[in-house]
């Protein structure tokens, strides 16, 4: 490799270059461009014209915007704690290595690996009010069978429900977290006569807390942003805007309405809100860790 002998730092920068160029070209610049477009009127054809804060003023009187904010917040507030609870419960259930447990873990991960398009279709079928398997099951048990995705008051909950199964990533992260708790802690506590609840309450939970906060932050981003495809393909934001979330509204403004400025303004507001939550969250993690050492 004589011909490749470069100054060490320079080779490293060579390895880093594709990533850094891509990071700037595909993330940073587009992000900045969106930021700038939020203050302009732009239809994708004529050059953008400066509008100042007019886009934000328009949003404040748009009746759908508060609905989208409310839906997104509800989606996150109901979805994140429930998803964390499922992740934690399953991680505790399948933590210990024993016969069959790897098979169980793989099964839990299964819904997470299904591509979004397929996952959305599956659940539109399962939630079908008349002949979907879920309502046939509920009907056979003599339980009420709502119209799920096509009924205004259940649509958002139905969306949260189907996302409770796609928790594989957080589940794995918590398994690693549990795995890292030294067994000696439990041994000592048992000698002191702690029962299972006390062990969980005073050892597992505090040591897992930083992980849980990190997962909560990540899950907020996931639910507020990345569920676009699933919402788009299951309800399309309906019925009557009952499931229109902010990314969906932004998409409609940009790609259906060709109001790029409005779309960008919505994205900017979402980003700022998420950023604020993230800052608080990361601060919390640091503080928790200082506390535990």
């Amino acid at each position: 490799m004589k011909h490749l002998v470069l100054a060490p730092q320079r080779t490293l920068l060579l390895l880093l270059a594709p990533y850094l160029i891509g990071a700037v070209g595909l993330f940073v610049l587009p992000g900045v461009l969106t930021l700038a477009l939020a203050f302009t009127a732009y239809d994708g054809l004529a050059p953008p014209t400066w509008r100042g804060l007019q886009n934000f003023a328009d949003l404040s009187i748009d009746p759908i915007f508060p609905t989208a904010v409310q839906n997104t917040v509800l989606f996150v507030i109901i979805g994140v704690p429930l998803r964390l609870l499922v992740m934690l419960g399953l991680a505790l259930l399948f933590e210990r290595e024993r016969r069959g447990v790897r098979l169980y873990r793989s099964a839990i991960y299964m819904p997470t690996i299904i591509p979004d398009v397929a996952y959305a279709l599956i659940w539109v079928w399962i939630y079908n009010p008349l002949y979907g398997p879920l309502n046939l099951l509920l009907g056979a048990a003599g339980l009420p069978a709502p119209a799920w995705l096509v009924q205004e008051d259940t649509a958002l909950l139905a969306l949260v429900g189907m996302l409770l199964f796609q928790i594989g990533e957080g589940f794995v992260v918590l398994l690693v977290g549990l795995h890292n708790i030294p067994a000696a802690y439990y041994d000592i506590a048992r000698v002191d006569g702690g029962n299972r609840w006390q062990l969980f309450r005073h050892i597992t939970l505090p040591l897992l807390l930083p992980w849980l906060v990190l997962l909560a932050i990540r899950d907020m981003i996931v639910l507020a942003q990345q569920t676009f495809v699933i919402v788009y393909l299951t309800t399309g934001g309906g019925p009557y805007y009952a499931t229109t979330t902010l990314p969906l509204l932004a998409y409609e403004q940009v790609f259906d309405g060709l109001r790029f400025g409005h779309g960008a303004a919505i994205m900017l507001l979402t980003f700022l809100a998420l950023g604020a939550v993230l800052l608080v969250g990361f601060g919390l993690v640091r503080w928790l860790q200082r506390d535990s050492r």
Binding site: L26, L29, P30, L33, T34, Q226, A250, Y251, M267
Partner: peptide
């Protein structure tokens, strides 16, 4: 970079 909402990148890309 991980925090940047994907939706914000679609249009400029």
């Amino acid at each position: 970079l991980l925090m940047i909402p994907a939706v914000a990148l679609w249009l400029p890309r």
